[in-house]
């Protein structure tokens, strides 16, 4: 239950859609945004390092023939363009072609969207990324961190200027809702009375039952016991209350009746 709760306790933002629905999305927190930036910086740094080493290797050669000189100058130009491109182009380019994601953001399932829920346009992307020297890079990053920490929708200055925010997208795992594979004969179920579970309880039960195959034996036992203890009071007055089944089979049986 804890993972479920934490997803909902995180800062959420309400966006209004034209379909008259308030969409609730999870705003990315300081930690994941910092990590995403660090991944992006590491990636850029690695590329620069490779090109720089290549340049050092080429210039080490003392024979100043025409070919070496040409390639040295070519790679120096490339290095200049790369540094410049990384500083001003990297975030703009990736957020533009990947619809609000950079490699770091993609790894951490973050995405930039407009405050009203629509995708970012290239002007928004320019606005939020050209302002990075003031609130992201180097010691100025402290300003950005503070802004993300304090502001309600975790927006740094550039986000305020571009009216954007960064959201966290959890990958959807539909397997929670799969049919429960039952080892029990179904004949004894058909005539038993139905039991009402609340939707969160139903989800919890199914999440456990569909995951149990992948759990370690001791974890599996512990979880089934704890679920059994918690769900037992709900079946008062039905035949399940006195059922002699072991906890896990009992839970399967319960899932069949709802």
């Amino acid at each position: 239950m804890s993972t479920l709760n934490s997803a909902w306790d995180a800062r959420k933002t309400e966006l209004e859609l034209p379909e008259e629905i308030d969409l609730q999305l999870e705003v990315a927190n300081v930690g994941s945004r910092t990590l995403a930036i660090l991944i992006d910086l590491a990636l850029g740094g690695m590329i620069l390092f490779i090109v720089y080493s290549l340049m050092l290797l080429l210039t080490r050669d003392v024979t100043r023939d025409l070919v070496t000189r040409f390639s040295t100058h070519a790679i120096l130009t490339l290095l200049l363009l790369l540094i410049f491109g990384f500083q001003w182009g990297y975030f703009n380019l990736f957020e533009w072609i990947w619809n609000g994601q950079t490699p770091g953001k993609r790894l951490l399932h973050l995405r930039v969207i407009k405050v009203d829920g629509t995708p970012v346009s290239w002007i928004d992307i320019l606005l939020r990324n050209l302002s990075r020297p003031i609130d992201t890079f180097g010691p100025m990053g402290l300003i950005g961190l503070l802004m993300i920490f304090v502001s309600r929708k975790a927006q740094r200055l550039g986000d305020l200027m571009a009216r954007t925010l960064v959201i966290h997208e959890t990958t959807i795992d539909w397997s929670i809702f799969d049919e429960i594979k039952s080892p029990l004969p179904s004949s004894q179920i058909s005539n038993a009375p139905a039991i009402r579970l609340s939707s969160t309880q139903w989800e919890l039960l199914h999440r456990y039952l569909n995951r149990r195959e992948h759990l370690q034996a001791d974890v599996r036992l512990r979880l089934s016991l704890s679920l059994y203890e918690n769900l037992k009071p709900l079946v008062k007055g039905t035949d399940l209350e006195l059922s002699p089944l072991p906890p896990e089979d009992w839970l399967v049986e319960l899932a069949q009746r709802t």
Partner: peptide, 16 residues
């Protein structure tokens, strides 16, 4: 429920 979270995200993706 998680389902609600999933539906929010699915609709957001489609909306995008």
């Amino acid at each position: 429920t998680t389902l609600l979270l999933f539906l929010h995200q699915l609709v957001a993706r489609a909306h995008n």
